[in-house]
Structure formats: structure tokens, C-alpha cells
């Protein structure tokens, strides 16, 4: 990796660590969401860096009961290795009633993810949640929202956002439940993989290609579709992303271009 890339990653890391420390200082009972995916595992790693190896708040995994076996294995292994205070959020009632994406995808997610988390937040009264949301495309206004307040119903009004200067941030008063904090909002997918490579982070094996396919993000088994790829290592994923989404895009291989477009059409629902 060139020196410039190294400096760039260091700057991303510095900003994220600062956000994490600031949030920890401002809120009395934070927690982090962890899907075991690359983004939230990177965020946990940054939390460890922020607090010298030991994360001083609980880590929540939302278990929908239909995750890949690799997810549970990875979760339990890392929880041991990193000494995580792991909390599992599970909507047992909905699972017993037999909610499934075949019946209703929207309801399934709402009950098994959102409601499960809501129940846990009500019990534990966390006032801040770290989420590993990213922005892959950078906008013009630096209006990146590292902080996003949610009310008790998880609702949020985009018009009513606090000022983007997160360090000047003041809690909104009415019906405030918790603050969502996005410490890696400014990272792209490629940034994450380059950082994983640099830090030699452990990664869920589902990301690596088997039989010409790999997962780009991890979710529940029924609703997660693998993408075509031959990338079997972190290095190969970095290379794959470099050619598939360079900003200049001149001379990009035709099949990569088509693969990107297919992925977008799938995300939109056209495929």
C-alpha cells in the first residue's frame, strides 16, 4: 500500500476514534450494534482502539433466528477473543408465531430486527447506539450525520436534524429515546476492506468466494443473495473493488461494469 493510502486510512481511523470517544463521554449508557459483518466488526475494532483494547459498553447482536451458521460461529469466537459484553436481542414471541419473509418481508424485518432491538432498549435503557452505517458516495455539503436522534418509536425527521457540527451537538428534548452514532459514516466499502487488510482483522468467511460467489453484506439466509465473484482473500476483494468502482472509471473492464449495474438493479428490485 502506498504511503498516501496509509495516511488516508490513518485519518479515517482518527476521525472515527474521536467520534467514539466523544459519544462515550457525552452519553451515560451507550452500546454498539454488531451484525458480525465487516462494517460493524471494523467499528468494534475502532472501539477497541478508542479504549485501549477493552470495549467499555455492551455489544448487541440482533438474532433473527435465521442467520447463517457462520455468523453464530464467528460471533461467539470473537466475543471470547475480544472479551465482549455480548447481548443478544431476539423477538422470541414473533419467532414462536412463525414470522417469515415469505409471509411478509417488511413485517418480518420489523418484528425480528426493529422490535427485538426496541424491546432490548426498553429493558436496558441505552441512551446511545453505535451503528456501522456508511456512505459510499460523498455528497457536496459535508452534511454527514454522525449523530441521528431517535424518538421512542425510532422515528426521526430528516428536516429536524441537529447541526452537522457533531462536537457542538445538544440533545433534542422532546420524546428523545436514544442517539444513533455513526462512527464510520465517512468510510467507503473499499476503505473498510483496505483497513481490514492493514489491521489484519478477522473476517467472517462468508465474504470470501466459494463456487464463484461471495456475500458482499451479511443478513438473514432467506433474504441475502451472494454476488458473482472469484475473490477468495481480503487482497482479492480489495482488487475486485478497485476495478469495479473507481471514480474515474475510464478503461474499466466491461464485465465489471455489467456486474456493478446488475448489483444496482438487484438492489433496486429490477432483477
Amino acid at each position: 500500500m502506498s504511503g498516501i493510502d496509509g495516511e488516508y486510512l490513518k485519518e479515517l481511523e482518527r476521525k472515527s476514534v474521536a467520534i467514539i470517544r466523544e459519544a462515550k463521554a457525552q452519553f451515560s449508557k451507550p452500546a454498539a450494534l454488531w451484525s458480525t459483518g465487516k462494517d460493524s466488526t471494523t467499528a468494534l475494532w475502532l472501539c477497541r482502539k478508542a479504549f485501549f483494547g477493552k470495549i467499555p459498553f455492551p455489544v448487541i447482536h440482533i438474532d433473527t433466528g435465521c442467520k447463517f451458521p457462520e455468523i453464530y460461529e464467528f460471533r461467539d469466537r470473537m466475543a471470547r477473543e475480544w472479551g465482549l459484553d455480548l447481548l443478544v436481542a431476539k423477538n422470541g414471541e414473533a419467532l414462536r408465531k412463525g414470522v417469515s419473509p415469505e409471509k411478509d418481508r417488511f413485517e418480518c424485518c420489523t418484528l425480528l430486527k426493529t422490535q427485538a432491538l426496541k424491546n432490548l432498549l426498553e429493558e436496558e435503557r441505552f441512551d446511545a447506539l453505535f451503528l456501522a452505517i456508511r456512505r459510499d458516495e460523498h455528497g457536496i455539503r459535508a452534511k454527514e450525520r454522525y449523530y441521528s436522534p431517535r424518538d421512542s418509536d425510532f422515528k426521526w425527521d430528516y428536516k429536524d436534524q441537529p447541526a452537522e457540527m457533531w462536537d457542538l451537538y445538544v440533545k433534542p428534548s422532546e420524546d428523545f429515546s436514544h442517539m444513533r452514532v455513526h462512527p464510520i459514516l465517512h468510510w467507503t466499502e473499499l476503505d473498510v476492506w483496505q483497513y481490514v487488510k492493514r489491521e489484519k482483522l478477522p473476517i467472517n468467511p462468508l465474504y470470501f468466494a466459494r463456487n464463484g460467489k461471495r456475500y458482499r453484506s451479511l443478513g438473514c439466509m432467506p433474504c441475502t443473495v451472494p454476488v458473482d465473484s472469484d475473490a477468495k482473500t481480503v487482497d482479492e476483494i480489495v482488487e475486485e473493488l478497485k476495478v469495479s468502482r473507481v471514480p474515474e472509471r475510464a478503461g474499466r473492464a466491461q464485465d465489471k461494469e455489467q456486474a456493478y449495474m446488475m448489483q444496482k438493479l438487484r438492489s433496486l428490485g429490477y432483477m
Binding site: F106, C109, R134, R135, D136, E189, K264, S267, L268
Partner: peptide, 9 residues
């Protein structure tokens, strides 16, 4: 972007 679209549900 695909990230946000994949999360719309």
C-alpha cells in the same frame, strides 16, 4: 447507492 437500497426494509 446499493448500500442504502439494500437497507430500505
Amino acid at each position: 447507492g446499493t448500500e442504502t437500497l439494500d437497507r430500505v426494509d
